[in-house]
């Protein structure tokens, strides 16, 4: 029973209160880069969610069963990034084969999941928070869902921003950052959310 409550509080935290984008600042690059249209944003969000889930599962096993066992904890960063890079390669080949339209829509941002700080970040945070295997996977997947929520909301606001009237020098990234800032303010409201 305790286990279920822990998992629930991890879920709520990762999606709302400690959202990767708005409170931990992980994965900002794809968040700003692939959020001009809702469809691509959904695709990116799903790709990141699966990437995060797989990465936290694999890195959790790698950490416990090989790095710690052989006293190689200091190789953590190098080992994790290599594991993640090959995982992303697999996702890429899978998408290319089975969902070519999504593959072309994501374009350059798919290989960029490798350098998405959220993916390496979640692996490191799992270790830092001492999560076991199940908790790690739940944290990864729900963190990804939080990212999906954030990027879809953000993309739908940005689609409407096209019609807004703002000074020329604010065009592009500045206005997007202001939007993200206001959304972060809204998400801050969830930080008081502690059920358990």
């Amino acid at each position: 029973m305790d286990q279920i409550f822990t998992l629930l509080s991890i879920t709520l935290g990762a999606i709302l209160a400690n959202n990767f984008i708005f409170s931990q600042f992980l994965g900002i690059c794809p968040f700003l880069g692939v959020s001009k249209k809702v469809d691509t944003a959904v695709g990116m969000g799903l790709a990141v969610t699966s990437g995060l889930g797989l990465a936290s599962a694999v890195t959790s096993l790698v950490h416990k069963d090989s790095l710690v066992k052989f006293g190689l904890g200091f190789m953590q960063t190098v080992a994790f990034i290599l594991v993640i890079a090959s995982l992303v390669q697999f996702i890429e080949m899978f998408l290319q084969k089975s969902m070519p339209s999504l593959y072309t829509a994501l374009g350059v941002y798919l290989p960029l999941i490798t350098t998405n700080c959220a993916v390496l970040g979640v692996a490191l945070l799992n270790i830092q928070n001492n999560y076991n295997f199940i908790e790690s996977v739940v944290y990864g997947v729900t963190g990804g869902l939080g990212f999906l929520l954030a990027i879809v909301l953000f993309a739908s606001i940005r689609e409407r921003l096209v019609f807004a009237d703002y000074p020329k020098s604010w065009e592009g990234f500045p206005i997007a950052l202001v939007t993200a800032g206001l959304m972060a303010l809204a998400f801050m409201g969830f930080s008081g959310l502690k059920v358990w």
């Binding site: 020098s169 592009g172 500045p174 950052l177 202001v178 801050m188």
Partner: peptide, 25 residues
């Protein structure tokens, strides 16, 4: 106090980039 929170990071960076774009143009 808001500026020390995550919100402040977004807003400050937005202002700096806007300033840069203005200066470059």
């Amino acid at each position: 106090g808001m500026l020390t929170l995550p919100v402040g990071g977004f807003l400050t960076l937005a202002c700096l980039i806007a300033l840069m774009q203005w200066a470059l143009s």
